[in-house]
Design a protein around this nucleic acid. Structure first.
Length: 827
RNA sequence: GCCCGGGUGGCGGAAUUGGUAGACGCAAGGGACUUAAAAUCCCUCGGGUUAACGCCCGUGCCGGUUCGAGUCCGGCCCCGGGCACCA
């Protein structure tokens, strides 16, 4: 009896079976090789969207495939549950963030289960639970003890809409990463993680990740860290200023030090005010005021305009003993280097522009090889390497060698040193928000800042909270939380009311999955040593710097705190492209959102999964196309119909092997195709080339549909082809595959069965197609026995009529033979 | 400006180490079945030329290496992404 392909019915049945038999629960098995595959966990926003579906489908294919390859697979899921949207929902709709989050989790969990992902749900975690963030707080206190977490007052990024501080990584084009509001600069107290101390290791580690991570991500991290090597040099001040005898500068071009014609100080620099001489006060102070008022966005928008004022002060170039005027300039950044720069207009474009605008001298000290440059003719700075000139005893040295010589010189005279600088800033983790993990610190009137001791952890987020009022941190208004006693002296103390950036939670969750319910320590060492690191991590490229850099940092911190022995958290990284519609990101405002639930209702999970995998290579953006989904659905229907055409005719032939001598010619061809397909799909899955893996199965289906069995042995081949399709499609479309598998008469679950192997003898065709070229152009194709050698191929080529026509009596100069492939006759 | 990717039919995309460019799918056109439609099945589908077999051109552009280049080398152009007054 042939029945219609009823995806919903089949899918529900197999989901229940897998669930009941606990197929996906992972346990440590010492003798078995582990494989930890993980997708970036979701923020419980309320609905699963197509981006999630794509991410988790890819992960699920990997998990199922690796499991059938015999690996002990860990494939967990959880919730990145703290964060601002929950709090905003609370303010707007009155629901408590905890309740809102919990409801969203339950809704999204239902959706995920509907999609049939092979998660080990027993390991589910939500970062908002005290049993989770307790350990994060413990790590914080250890970091505090080691000086890796510290508090300082500084200029921070403030989002007025989210009413909180943001880390540098969370500011995109001067706007908030979450709400896109323009970010302001504010002077504030805040907690920082010393990620800069790991800058070099994060950079070096990239070498280790070279094979497993995409170049683009490593390059982005490298750019973000922004290492530059150079020198720190002291320029003596002509007269002391605020007790300082020198101006300190950082430069990557010490070789140009003889060309310094002025110095520039950032307007925000603490020395700026003291450097200004009375007669220049009026203009200078006005200038400082103006620059300080600008937001970072305005400062960027103003772009190339280089402005500044003379302070009236001078310093001395220690190399030339020249008197150097000191300026305040808007293009000098207070947050980079020392906030003071030596200016060499001849060899730096910004310095050049500023000098031109302010009538400052330009002194050439690097000459391009072989030719001179005339300062008066220069329209831009010469920034390339060259030969040092007009540089005293250093003249004649190449600029590259000169850098070293100058550094050696300043070190020997004690007026400077070799220095490396990074663009990377320390990670500001303080958030003036309620819905996050409390920073476990108290401020005692006598003892000052004190870390909460382990036995008092977790510092629980109080549930009773009022969001009404004038905004700001709701936590700071809960007196019962704020008021506490000092763990040191028992005296009066106040709690820290900032919570941690939610990126702290996501920086270590992947390790917690190893022992999610362990309550004696952050990890059960035995479990984490077995499962970690993550063998394959999968997620969107938008986290290239944020989450992926923080996690690498945090992993190294955990190692240095003795809590794990991992250097890197993710051995291999796969970044999937976005799901778009009509060339644009899916969004409510554009009205181009495709709801996964609707698609599943219409076609079933297997179709949706298959389409997502087939429509584009994983790394690329995927343009959602409803006709394409129909195509995938058609494909599954064709397999279904073919299977139920063949299976009833082979009931008596269950488990039989075809007798090769009795199989027809076309049957043998199908047998070869089938084995080639196994090889192709296996290779493709290893490389995450799901689109071509599916295409290969489609080809096999086409060939099998065309095949007309002429005998029982032919029927066995056809049956084998159906079985192969079910087996190969399993990681991608598991439900229909499991159904066909059971229809084929197997009692053991396909989910528990090993991967299918190809027969090496049967991937070689009996016949090969040899391409004949004349002068490199294809002129003919010959079908020959597969064991034909080069001589035979040559003979056949020359005997071929079509080839003869193109040779037309000319003498071949040369004949190239590629065994089993091609003959090229050169005339 | 610097650093990563990438440019192949109407579209999404295939092409081991250089060896038949366009697999597979979508869309489109034609046909079969049907009272009709849907579904299904069959055929065509890069451009030019030819009655046809064929032949010529064709993987962003220019040049090179090679018997042979989408693939390798050099020089450009364009698109996407990251960083960006970083000294």
């Amino acid at each position: 009896m042939k029945e219609r392909y009823n995806a919903q019915e089949i899918e529900q049945r197999w989901r229940e079976t897998w669930d009941k038999k606990k197929v996906y629960e992972a346990k440590v098995e010492k003798g078995k090789e582990k494989y930890y595959v993980l997708e970036m966990f979701p923020y419980p926003s309320g609905r699963i969207h197509m981006g999630h579906v794509r991410n988790y489908t890819i992960g699920d294919v990997v998990a199922r495939y690796k499991r059938s390859r015999g690996f002990n697979v860990l494939h967990p899921i959880g919730w990145d549950a703290f964060g601002l949207p929950a709090e905003n929902a609370a303010i707007q709709h009155g629901a408590h963030p905890a309740k809102w989050t919990e409801e969203n989790i339950s809704q999204m969990k239902t959706q995920l289960k509907l999609l049939g992902f092979s998660y080990d749900w027993t390991r589910e975690i939500a970062t908002c639970h005290p049993s989770y963030y307790k350990w994060e707080q413990m790590v914080f206190t250890r970091m505090y003890e080691k000086g890796l977490a510290y508090k300082k007052a500084t200029t921070v990024n403030w989002c007025p809409s989210c009413e909180t501080v943001l880390a540098n990584e969370q500011v995109e084009d001067g706007c908030c990463w979450r709400c896109e509001h323009i970010v302001e600069r504010r002077e504030m107290d805040g907690w920082f993680f010393k990620i800069t101390e790991y800058a070099d290791e994060l950079l070096d580690g990239a070498r280790e990740l070279k094979d497993g991570w995409p170049d683009s991500v490593l390059s982005m991290q490298k750019n973000w860290i922004g290492k530059s090597t150079g020198a720190h040099i002291q320029f003596p001040l002509q007269e002391q200023v605020a007790g300082e005898r020198h101006l300190e500068v950082f430069t990557t071009r010490p070789d140009t030090v003889f060309g310094v014609t002025y110095m520039s100080v950032a307007p925000e620099h603490p020395l700026a005010g003291d450097l200004i001489k009375r007669e220049f006060e009026k203009d200078a102070l006005k200038f400082i005021e103006r620059v300080k008022k600008q937001t970072s966005l305005e400062r960027i928008a103003e772009g190339a305009k280089k402005e500044g004022v003379f302070t009236g002060s001078y310093c001395i170039n220690p190399f030339t003993n020249e008197r150097i005027p000191i300026y305040l300039a808007n293009f000098v950044l207070i947050e980079y280097g020392t906030g003071i720069i030596m200016c060499v207009p001849a060899h730096d474009q910004r310095d050049f522009e500023f000098a031109k605008g302010h009538g400052l001298p330009i002194k050439l000290v690097i000459k391009p090889d072989g030719q001179g440059l005339n300062v008066d003719d220069m329209t831009e700075a010469y920034i390339e390497p060259g030969i040092m000139t007009d540089s005293g005893e250093f003249s004649g040295i190449s600029s590259e060698a000169g850098k070293e010589k100058i550094i050696e010189y300043v070190e020997s005279r004690g007026i400077g040193k070799r220095q490396i600088n990074y663009r990377l800033r320390d990670w500001g983790i303080s958030r003036q928000r309620y819905w996050g993990a409390p920073i476990p610190m108290v401020y005692c009137e006598d003892c000052g800042a004190v870390a909460v001791p382990d036995e008092d952890l977790p510092v629980e987020l109080p549930i009773e909270v009022n969001f009404e009022g004038d905004g700001g941190s709701s936590l700071s208004k809960i007196e019962s939380f704020v008021r506490t006693t000092c763990p040191n002296c028992g005296g009066k103390a106040r709690r820290e009311t900032d919570t941690m950036d939610t990126f702290v939670e996501s920086s270590w969750y992947f390790l917690r999955y190893a022992s999610p319910n362990y309550d004696k320590d952050i990890f059960d060492r035995e479990e984490v040593n077995y499962w970690a690191p993550v063998d394959q991590y999968i997620g969107g490229v938008e986290h290239a710097i944020l989450h992926l850099l923080y996690s690498r940092f945090f992993t190294k911190v955990l190692r240095d705190l003795g809590m794990s022995n991992l250097d890197e958290p993710f051995v291999n990284l796969l970044t999937q492209g976005m799901v778009i519609k009509d060339g644009a990101k899916m969004s409510k405002s554009l009205g181009n959102v495709i709801d996964p639930d609707d698609m599943i209702k219409k076609y079933g999970t297997d179709t949706v999964r298959l389409f997502i995998l087939f429509a584009a290579p994983v790394q690329k953006d995927l343009d959602w196309n409803n006709e394409g989904v129909e195509g995938s659905f058609r494909f599954l229907n064709r397999i279904w119909n073919l299977a139920f055409d063949i299976l009833p005719r082979t009931c008596d032939l269950k488990g039989a092997k075809p007798d090769l001598a009795k199989v027809s010619g076309s049957g043998k061809e199908l047998l070869i195709k089938l084995n080639k397909t196994i090889k192709k799909v296996t290779d493709d899955l290893e490389k995450f080339q799901f689109n071509t893996a599916i295409a290969a199965v489609m080809e096999l289906l086409n060939d099998t549909s065309r095949f007309k069995p002429k005998s029982d042995d032919d029927l066995i081949v056809a049956r084998e082809s159906v079985e192969t399709m079910a087996r190969l499609l399993y990681p991608m479309a598991p439900h229909i595959s499991e159904e066909l598998w059971s229809e084929l008469g197997y009692n053991e679950l396909l989910a528990d069965s090993p991967w299918i192997e190809w027969d090496n003898e049967l991937v070689k065709s009996a016949e090969i197609t040899v391409v004949v070229q004349v002068n490199g152009k294809v002129r003919s194709q010959l079908v020959m026995d597969a064991d034909s050698d080069g001589e035979r191929m040559k003979e056949a080529a020359f005997a071929d009529e079509r080839t003869k026509k193109h040779i037309s009596g000319k003498t071949p100069r040369k004949v190239i033979v590629v065994p089993k492939k091609l003959v090229n006759i050169v005339l």
